[in-house]
Design a binder for these strands. Structure first.
Length: 459
RNA sequence: UCCUCGGUAGCUCAGCUGGUAGAGCAGGUGACUGUUAAUCACCCUGUCGGCGGUUCGAAUCCGUCCCGGGGAGCCA
């Protein structure tokens, strides 16, 4: 019976005859037999196969197995007499499915730089670290759905191709066909476009999620998002995944609590279910990771307003490259100082100046701030950005005009305020930043299977 | 896009102020061994990122272009 290695190791049955299929991680020869470590991606741990010289293909094939070869092993599970593993598979048959020429196979039995691995995007999931990232990412993704589904949220598939720019969210990739290609920018009128008007890849599903929130109550969208920014950092991608809940009848306070609850839920989830992989990250990638994650689960997130943040930064007497003063947008150095030095835990900052935030955020009673929130975490900086949305038609229209946005392209959005408008809130979680936070991976290009950055999209 | 550091063997990197390229790992061969990134011995490996310049002589100095890392801006 063919089994996944994770299942075999989780509940070993001594004496069981079984089959495993996977890739050779290393081969060590002893006198009269060989040790072959086989991994199938189901877990970080591999299974040790004992291949005796009595196997029919021992000399011809088994002794020539090298890193990366694929094999189908049939054998009997037995207790291992040596340290390092509890059980091992004594092979009765080793079938080689695919060879991997050791002269040219790029992966070795050692740590490679992530920079090098990026150039072999198609082979890097076979490494311990990238395999672990993939498993954690998958578990987190599933967790996002269970978190919201368990709370009655309805998933909405917001469009990938859109004709409305979510203003302030960055540059859009243009979508067109060769015959329709033109110099026209998104938002301008055009006669011959495929969609009748210029279209682009979505930079956020928020505006469309708002549509469904104002019909179904609590909704969320979780999908790919695209930004045509020429930004080259360890925290940005041209294509990334975003989790965006949108909640009707919900103010900033409620929004904040859902966001904190969600982050804690997801961290708790991987601590419980990805322990083996997280232990690898804790040991080799980011020392102290497990303790840090446990703290996130145990502690209340700190919460201050933007105005308080500015005061704290001024009182810190710290010298910053960008001087602090009420009205400025908080810079990376400020955010990091707040969350890493002053609070040393996740920090929620709310009530930012209206002038530096997008038109859809709700203007507060003081008239100069909006009901916005950012969640900052140590090591990453901003991981969540959200707000209560402006539900008052007149105020929204005024804010659009102030921002220089032509309301005619947003009639559908304004309609939501004309007909049965309700207070509502939502936020966006950069999924890759969450994976970074949880795994401790320093570069965002390592936490998405196929990273897209300016000048880089190999397959 | 800006700042900064870098590009030398398949990988990781050394090569001081210019004198004609090296170590570990990987790979190959052999030995040894219930091994754990096994160990030991021997062997193989290079347009020193591209182009141009200075010089008797450039991996090394100068110019320029390309590519990458880190940081910044923007954001998630």
């Amino acid at each position: 019976m063919k089994k996944r290695i994770a299942n075999v190791l989780a509940a070993p049955q001594i004496g069981e005859q079984l089959q495993v299929a996977g890739w050779v991680r290393t081969r060590r020869d002893a006198s009269g037999f060989s040790f072959i470590e086989v991994g199938d991606g189901s877990s970080l741990a591999n299974i040790q196969v004992i291949a005796d010289q009595t196997l029919a293909n021992y000399g011809d094939e088994v002794k020539k197995l090298s890193v990366g070869c694929s094999v189908l092993v049939t054998g009997i599970l037995q207790e291992s007499p040596a340290k390092g593993q509890a059980v091992e598979l004594r092979a009765t048959e080793v079938q080689v499915l695919g060879w991997a020429d050791p002269e040219s196979y790029p992966l070795q039995k050692k740590q490679h730089s992530f920079e090098f691995l990026r150039n072999i995007t198609h082979l890097r999931p076979r490494t311990n670290a990238l395999g672990a990232v993939a498993r954690v990412r998958s578990r987190l993704s599933y967790g996002v759905h269970t978190f919201f589904q368990d709370r009655g949220f309805i998933q909405v598939h917001t469009p990938i191709i859109t004709t409305s720019d979510c203003e302030g969210a960055g540059e859009m990739f243009q979508v067109t066909t060769p015959s329709h290609a033109s110099e026209v920018k998104v938002g301008e009128e055009s006669g011959g476009e495929f969609f009748g008007r210029p279209a682009g890849l979505t930079v956020s599903g928020q505006l469309q999620a708002e549509v469904y929130a104002q019909a179904l109550g609590n909704v969320y969208t979780f999908g790919p998002t695209f930004r045509a920014e020429n930004s080259n950092t360890s925290r940005h991608l041209a294509e990334f995944w975003m989790v965006e809940p949108e909640m009707a009848f919900c103010d900033l306070e409620g929004n904040r609590h859902v966001a904190e609850e969600m982050l804690k839920y997801l961290v708790r989830l991987v601590l419980a279910e990805c322990a083996e992989d997280l232990a690898l990250f804790d040991r080799f990638i980011a020392k102290g990771l497990l303790a840090r994650l446990q703290q996130v689960v145990d502690q209340e997130f700190a919460h201050i307003t933007y105005t308080q943040a500015v005061e704290e930064l001024l009182q810190s007497k710290q010298s910053f490259t960008y001087p602090v003063q009420w009205g400025i947008d908080l810079q990376s150095e400020h955010e990091r100082y707040l969350t890493e030095t002053i609070y040393q835990r996740p920090l929620i900052v709310t009530d930012y100046p209206a002038a530096i935030k997008p038109f859809y955020m709700r203007v507060s009673e003081d008239g100069r701030t909006v009901a916005a929130m950012d969640i900052l975490v140590p090591g990453i900086g901003e991981i969540i950005g959200g707000s209560q949305r402006e539900e008052r038609y007149d105020v929204l229209l005024a804010r659009m005009q102030q921002a220089g946005i032509e309301p005619s392209g947003y009639e559908w959005y304004l309609d939501l305020r004309r007909y049965g408008t309700v207070p509502h809130s939502g936020f966006g979680l950069g999924f890759e930043r969450l994976v970074q936070f949880v795994t401790g991976m320093a570069n965002i290009r390592e936490v998405i299977p196929f990273p897209r950055t300016p000048g880089f999209a190999p397959c």
